[in-house]
Amino acid sequence: MEEPDKKLALKKRSYLLTIKTLAPVHVGSGQVATRNFDFYQAGNQFHFFD
């Protein structure tokens, strides 16, 4: 009997993960964001556009 392909067996597995963030994270380009173009502020909250 042939041995099953290990790479194929790994592709068929699925995992249920729970991830908890420890701090807010923003990954940006390093360029300065422009108000009302890249983001807007409502009170003390900032909303960034994609």
Score class of each variant (00 low, 15 high):
43 G>F: 06
42 A>V: 15
21 T>R: 04
25 V>W: 10
47 H>T: 14
46 F>E: 00
50 D>G: 08
27 V>D: 07
1 M>I: 09
11 K>S: 11
29 S>W: 01
41 Q>N: 03
24 P>L: 00
23 A>D: 12
34 T>K: 03
50 D>V: 06
21 T>H: 09
40 Y>H: 02
35 R>E: 00
49 F>V: 02
21 T>F: 07
11 K>Y: 14
40 Y>P: 00
46 F>R: 11
4 P>F: 04
34 T>A: 00
7 K>L: 15
23 A>C: 09
23 A>P: 01
49 F>M: 07
40 Y>I: 00
46 F>L: 11
6 K>C: 02
34 T>G: 01
8 L>K: 15
27 V>R: 05
6 K>E: 07
29 S>R: 01
5 D>W: 05
23 A>R: 12
7 K>V: 15
25 V>G: 12
44 N>Y: 01
39 F>T: 09
41 Q>F: 05
16 L>W: 07
41 Q>H: 02
31 Q>P: 15
1 M>H: 06
37 F>R: 10
37 F>A: 06
4 P>S: 08
13 R>K: 09
37 F>G: 01
35 R>N: 08
2 E>N: 10
35 R>V: 13
7 K>E: 15
11 K>I: 14
1 M>Y: 06
27 V>M: 11
35 R>H: 08
18 T>M: 02
24 P>H: 01
35 R>A: 08
6 K>S: 04
29 S>H: 04
9 A>T: 08
37 F>M: 05
45 Q>D: 14
46 F>N: 01
29 S>P: 00
32 V>G: 02
23 A>H: 13
19 I>L: 10
43 G>V: 05
2 E>A: 08
12 K>P: 06
3 E>C: 09
45 Q>I: 15
48 F>Q: 01
18 T>I: 04
17 L>R: 14
49 F>A: 00
12 K>D: 14
18 T>K: 03
22 L>A: 09
30 G>E: 14
49 F>K: 09
43 G>L: 05
15 Y>T: 12
11 K>C: 13
23 A>S: 14
37 F>Y: 11
12 K>E: 15
27 V>P: 01
50 D>T: 06
30 G>P: 12
